[in-house]
Computed example of a mutant assay.
Amino acid sequence: MEPIRVLHVLSALAKNGAESRIMDIYRNINREKIQFDFAVHTTKQCDFDNEVKSMGARIYSFPKFKIFNYLQYYKEWEQFFKEHTEIQIIHIHVTNLAAVILNAAQKSSVPVRITHSRNSNQSGFVQKVFLALTRNIIFRKSTQMLAVSKEAGEYVFGKKAMEAGIVRILRNAIDARKYTFNAELRKKIRAELEVKDNLVVGHIGRFVEQKNHKFVLDIFKKLQKIKPHAVLILVGIGEKQPQMREYAEDIGVGKSVIFMGSRNDVPMLLQAFDVLLFPSLFEGLPGVVLEAQAAGLPCVISDTITKEVAITDLVKYMSLSEAPKIWAVAVVKQATIPRINTIKNFVECGFNIHAIANEYVKMYMKYIVSN
């Protein structure tokens, strides 16, 4: 029996939050029953392209949606569905595109149409307006609505939909065993980074407005008044990276900030950190905070982030209205918490990757049977 093929719609197969979490599922799902394909909005080679192809996935490239090219974009999808009648399930993770794709999918009689909310807000004004205008279409033409958290569900589908129970919360999950704290490994990685015994503050995320890197640097400047030899490690790439490099130099912390770019060894880097600093403007259910907790790493994060992500006592929430100096004091204090093994927490709280991967299989199989 051929596996059921599920088409996941993403911006790109890059090492971003949503994409990384989908890859975690793909690596652990039963591919004899369920096979993933990917629709992306780039023609560039991306981080996960070769890996997904080696696992049997097909990648389809679409033009970027700019609102003014609505008709062209819609026709691309309409033509795609005509050529790919084997598509039975489409799983959309980019909610700004959902209404257009859902219209084409419904017209082409794609039986299972899933819209998955992965964030609790957006940065762009135009994107916010477009989502508001198309929310009713998403609501009517999705056969299933999913969200990674209550806040993410409310943002896209509305509070009434969440209260009515018609949106299913399907949490992000990670393979926590990959991140388990190892004291010897920590020594090795810190030696390679040449950070000695200094306080190491880490942040992992794309250089975009949402991740609030300017505030990260402002906090670190104040933190260096308490810990003059502290080091800040920033992992990730993005449009604001050059601007943040310049800002770090302007405020006098450039020599203490390590811009590491895109990395394949995040589990290793988390071993070397003393604390994760994560003051995002908004998030859905940030995987990096789960990864940090899996590594037994203390975290200081913004209170705009869902409380659902705090599955251990390692997470401290702070208001973005607090001054950088107050954040700096909290970061230094949080970094003194001893590292612990948190595997039990992940199993008990349902964030185990194997359990969630099985939930995906059951969900897709159920949708096919019911449709």
Rank of each mutant, 00 (worst) to 15 (best):
F220L: 06
H229C: 07
N198L: 05
I237R: 09
V235P: 08
L199H: 00
V231K: 13
P228I: 11
H203E: 00
L234V: 09
K196G: 10
I226L: 14
I233C: 15
G205C: 09
K221T: 11
Q210R: 15
F215Q: 06
F207D: 02
G205N: 01
R206C: 02
G202Y: 00
E209S: 08
Q224S: 14
K214M: 10
G236H: 03
Q241P: 07
K227T: 12
H229N: 15
L217T: 06
L199A: 04
G236L: 08
F207V: 02
H229G: 11
E209D: 11
Q241F: 00
G236N: 04
D218P: 04
N212M: 10
N198Y: 03
A230T: 05
Q210D: 09
K227Y: 07
L223K: 03
E209H: 13
K227S: 15
I219M: 05
I219H: 01
H229I: 06
V235C: 09
V208T: 13
L232F: 05
I204Y: 00
K225G: 14
K227D: 08
V201S: 01
G205T: 03
H229S: 15
F220C: 14
I219D: 02
I237N: 05
I237L: 10
L217R: 06
V231E: 11
G202C: 04
V235W: 02
V200W: 01
L217V: 06
Q224G: 15
K196I: 01
E209F: 14
H203N: 13
V208N: 05
D218G: 12
G202V: 03
E239C: 00
H203G: 08
V200D: 01
V208Q: 06
P228Q: 03
K225T: 15
F207R: 07
L217W: 10
V201N: 00
L234C: 12
K225L: 15
Q224R: 15
K221M: 12
I233Y: 02
R206Y: 07
E239W: 04
D197M: 08
V231R: 11
V235Q: 11
G205D: 06
P228G: 13
G238I: 04
R206D: 03
L223C: 11
I237Y: 05
G236W: 03
K227M: 13
F207K: 08
K214L: 09
V200M: 05
R206T: 14
K221Q: 14
R206H: 06
G205Y: 04
A230M: 05
I219K: 04
E209M: 07
N212L: 14
K240F: 06
A230I: 13
V201F: 00
I237V: 12
D218T: 10
I219W: 02
P228T: 06
K227Q: 15
H213Y: 05
G205M: 09
Q224F: 02
F207S: 03
V201Q: 00
K211T: 13
D197S: 15
I226G: 02
L199K: 00
I226K: 09
H213M: 06
Q241Y: 01
K211E: 12
K240P: 04
L232Q: 05
D218I: 12
I233L: 15
K222I: 08
L199R: 01
I226W: 00
L234K: 10
K225H: 11
G205W: 02
V201R: 00
V231C: 12
V231L: 13
I233K: 07
K222W: 04
N198K: 09
G238T: 05
K196C: 07
K196N: 12
Q210I: 14
G202W: 01
Q241D: 03
N198T: 13
